[in-house]
Nucleic acid binder design. Sequence first.
DNA 1: ATGACTAATAGCATTAGA
Length: 257
Amino acid sequence: MRIASFNINGIKARLPRLLEWLAETRPAVACLQEIKTQDEGFPAAEFEQIGYQAVWHGQKGFNGVAVLADGTRPVVVQQGLPGDPEDAQSRYLEVEVFDTRIVNIYLPNGNPQPGPKFDYKLAWMERLRTRMRAIMAEEVPAVVLGDYNVIPTDRDIWSPKAMADDALMQPESRDAYMRLLADGWTDAIATHNPRGGVWTYWDYQAGAWQRDHGFRIDHALLSPELADRLLACGVDKDHRGREKASDHAPIWVELHR
DNA sequence: ATGACTAATAGCATTAGA
């Protein structure tokens, strides 16, 4: 069973590329981030035509997440990250489908840092940790995947110097990410690529794609039960090089059974 | 020190992204 994640950077602008990717790779579940549309603008019918049913949490202009499943509709467990009633941003959608808990996240970018956006990012990560610990305590097969906006180590970027002041690789961001792993979650791509050098994002600017100036910020964290069932994982890198591509490439995990 | 690019929304540029 393949579970994938794709920050699509606008579902309206990306729809042809997105449908193409689904047809080519046919994941059982696809988690989407940055759909950048209100709920009523979500193209559910386009997905149903190719056999996917969806749930989504939209927002006007930016953010927004959705989960697609092949042949069945995911059941929403939690929409919006708990822990702050004032937080209205659409960045979290937790579902149950195919006997698996699937948590789709679009973690705040946090730039510029320091500042209120960075504070929001760090607070969001602590709330996420609280929620992930609760899920872990349920002892269900679970995967928390999406755009984490964290470069975990210097092995996860082409040039640590180039982004040294960026929120994505500040010690506070990395420490918060490492605390998730310390709770017992397994970073699938890191585990299968211990030497690093795997990118999931290439900036649109300055020829970053052509120069392979990328970094890894899209992650899939597996609960112990799913970590035992991990067969393979990867990045659909070639989709980053196509016409009208997102600045992210899709990531995926293949699970036994 | 800055901008480079892209998308969305509402203009006749600005915000946000990372």
